[in-house]
Amino acid sequence: MRSLISIACIALVAAPVLASEDIADKYPASLLYDKPWEVIPGVFSAIGATAPPTYENAGHNNNLSFIVTGDGVVVMNGGASYGLAKALHAEIEAVTDQPVKLVFNENGQGHAVLGNNYWAEQGVPIVAHVDAAAEVEAHGPAILKAMQGYNKDRAEGTEVQVPTETFEEEYVVEMGDFRIEARYLGPAHSPGDIVLWLPKQSLVISGDMAFHERMLPIFADTMTADWLETWDTAFEPLEATYVIPGHGHPTNMDQVRRYTKDYLEYLRDQVGAVMDEGGGLAEAYYVDQSPYTHLDTFEELATKNAGRVFEQLEFERF
């Protein structure tokens, strides 16, 4: 287990530790892409690959975190499959004898919810925002089919399981030594995005509110103007010392701001300049995003992101 000094070196330096899509699976003995490590006392995270989901990484391309409270374990994210959830549970049991008492889904995406049926088998309540639960109900079979397409035999045992409990604004857990505040801060990356805020520890498990080391994707239902407003009015005011982002290594607020808020503002400005000059969608696809070429998934996402921002600005302006 890495020491707190090691964490400080990784998380709080001014320049980020860059990931690579070419790095092989870091934990071949497990379906997990990497072994969980202790970010601060009692809070662990298994850092996912910063590449798209593949058979090789078993869909573990987001961060699967858990909190050992002293009176039970709270997990953030069901995982991308039954097998991946089971693998995470094995790692939890290697760390503590305390039972898992609660699982949160950071949103309704596959890597957050497709392991839910494993946790339901263990009798663990699964909590999500009402909008995330609605996503699972509406699109669960399609999400499952997409995962089965890349995960093949590693998808075995996975079934759609909707969250068993939902909330709209806040779900507070007082357990052991921790106060855990699950908060819906407002529209962000996808419907029902939530964060877990640990006020005593000044740590936020941000889910997809914040990204680090990989380019964020802008989906058809990702309203970038709303995301920026939520960031400014609700996420930034947390003033978290430690951030476990949805993707990328644990870090600080400066770094996730750089690769989330600053990127969204930069891209909106670049695309807006194209529109001001009378350019159309074809020109918008190729705006300069060179300050972000070092991020993983840049090749997969940069032009798509620009196109979606163009469509949003077109709607906002006209």
Rank of each mutant, 00 (worst) to 15 (best):
P237Q: 08
L64C: 10
G246L: 09
G59R: 03
F211L: 01
G186P: 15
G115M: 04
P52Y: 08
D97T: 14
S45H: 02
E93F: 00
A182R: 03
H294E: 15
G278T: 14
P291T: 03
F178S: 10
T233D: 09
W227N: 04
K145F: 04
Q148G: 10
I92K: 00
P245Y: 13
Q312P: 11
A51T: 13
V195I: 15
G186D: 09
D269A: 14
P245Q: 13
Y263W: 13
A134F: 04
A94R: 15
K26F: 02
V39R: 02
V103N: 10
L216D: 06
V100S: 05
W227L: 13
A155M: 14
V68W: 03
A133Q: 09
V130I: 15
L114R: 10
S81D: 01
M215K: 12
A94S: 11
N151R: 14
K145L: 09
G157S: 00
V162A: 14
D22W: 13
T69M: 03
Q109D: 04
Y259K: 07
G70Q: 02
L301D: 03
V17I: 04
P99C: 07
L4D: 12
N57V: 05
D232A: 15
G278D: 06
I92W: 06
S6W: 06
A302G: 00
G192L: 06
V103L: 03
I47Q: 14
E135D: 15
T241F: 01
Q161S: 11
Y286K: 05
R179K: 05
D296H: 05
D177H: 03
A182F: 09
E165H: 14
I194R: 09
K145M: 14
G280M: 02
P191A: 00
E300T: 08
V75W: 08
D276A: 04
L216T: 12
P245M: 08
Y171F: 15
Y259H: 11
H139G: 12
D22H: 10
I10Q: 09
A220N: 07
P187C: 02
S290T: 13
P36L: 11
E229Q: 14
A87K: 02
A80W: 09
T230A: 07
L88T: 05
Q98D: 15
G149F: 10
V113K: 03
A132M: 10
M253S: 14
E316S: 01
R317C: 11
Q148S: 12
T158N: 05
T224P: 10
A11Q: 04
Q122F: 02
E38H: 02
S81P: 07
G115K: 12
P36G: 04
A29E: 15
D131Y: 07
